[in-house]
Amino acid sequence: MQIAIASGKGGTGKTTVAVNLALALSTSHEVTLADCDVEEPNCHLFFSGHPDEEIVTNPVPEIDTDACTLCGTCGSFCRYGALIVLTDRVLQYPQLCHSCGGCEIVCPTGAISMRPEKAGVVHISKPKPSLSLISGTLEEGSIHTTTVIKAVRRHLLRENLVLLDAPPGSSCAAMETLKDCDFCLMVTEPTPFGLHDLTLIHEVTEIFNIPTAVVINRSDEKNNDVDMYCTAHNLPVLMRIPFDRTIALMQGSGEIISGQDPVWRERFVRLGLQCLALTGAR
């Protein structure tokens, strides 16, 4: 069972919901929390412990200058501008390389081989006996966001209850995270922005035909457009979180509210069970 926690953009409280939900459900289930927001992974900030590390790489070309005849074939092939053949050398921009392997195939002299370049890391830890955290982190300056997400996904077991903290937006990274999920919990705010972003992420879930529900954060703002949208599209609103300085403070200092406050723990357990019920599982 895979449940994605997503939002049209960051900062809507998506990570807060993911972390609290994972902690609350871990009292009754074997839970894996997968941080797929690899450009800004934040889940790990809420748990301590020494994780195992796995380096994620993607192949980039390496050119044997003795074998290269500067024929230019690789440079005119590469659609990403990652190779340019000058009169005296081949210029490489590994940060533009999409690792398609084309240059290696087209080089007539066999001068190109592929070497691994670091795209990111996956951290694996077990903050609690019934809670595993798999967290992906994109290497700064790398463009291989989906490579790192795929690496995180490889660690997820179908039979476990998996919560995925999805990257914001409707980009390819969000798609990569959402595509095999059974359910998506969309976190938004009752503002014109929140509504706009909610419609975007809702469109993605419709492409994949994933059942969804909504959590409204900062629910005390006087704007009911989001509620109207949810009613119109038959989206159940499962939780409303009012703005609260205590929550904000806790969040800011890396504490988990449902770990501290029994009322909130109860609310998140209920949220989790509702999600599971909506997916048809128990």
Partner: peptide, 27 residues
Amino acid sequence: PGIGCPLISAVTGCDIVILVTEPGSSG
């Protein structure tokens, strides 16, 4: 948002980059 490909495209060649941030550990 983020630090990936779109961010790099948006910042490359800009004279000034204004970082908007808020207090909090994840920020």
